[in-house]
Amino acid sequence: MIPAAFDYARASSAEEAIALIGQYGDEAKFLAGGHSLLPLMKLRLAQPTVLVDIGRVPDLSYIREEGDQIAIGALTRHMDVETSPLLHQHVPLLAHAAGHVGDPQVRHRGTIGGSIAHADPASDLPATTLALGATYVAKGPNGTREIAAADFYHGFLTSALEADEMLVEIRVPKMNGAGWSFQKFNRRAQDWAIVGVAAWRRNGDAGVALVNMGSVPILATDVASAASSRIGSAIRRVTNWLDTSLAAAQADPQPDLNASADYRVHLAKVLTRRALEAASA
């Protein structure tokens, strides 16, 4: 319940945060909303020696329209994503998925950037932004760079972010009226997904990504061509893809208390079908 002791530093700008994290090195962690990190620290499963609090860095909480995209500041809270009229209009899948993260108290504190940077394959927003073809913007000592969501997730809780890089923005393409569905399967509403599927579909294009089917959130490939076909064949293509990617060990579902690996695969297929059906309705 009580974290191990650490030093605390509050950054007043992104530059300062990056400088601080560079100064303290590997044992330092960014602290945003804290809703991924603090639970681990309370059980002493994580014992960083320094926390760099970026929660007060100004101008990193926003949701704004930028051409074909919606740009979301990394410190934007889940509740603000969930309730954003702009997102409801242009990226309803993301707003909806954000409403499934944790519980209301968690959504009042947790941030989209924190969730993505934590790179937990069981989290809702990494897979959702992946399905949407999002781009993440990282800032480091040498300036900013863009990372496609598809290139971001490297392994369990590890990402393309360098140790001294900070996620500052998430850019999500507008959905332009695509049908969509977020299927979160769990036993209690507050829990992480046992398996989740984020999907959207419109004529000629589609995106599907899976929550908690391996060490990283998994993007279904070969779905764009499926998108133009009839729903039945689209579903077959995606489930075929799932079998293929399982065989290729891209998806590597692990057994845990709530699911065997087989069951996860089965659920992924059922939920993918349901998601595509709903997105096509």
Binding site: Y8, R10, G34, L38, P39, L51, D53, V106, H108, R109
Partner: peptide, 15 residues
């Protein structure tokens, strides 16, 4: 916290 429910066990006092 500023009018919204939060879990005070998951927030540092410094935050």
């Amino acid at each position: 916290l500023d009018g919204e429910a939060v879990k005070s066990c998951t927030i540092l006092a410094v935050q």
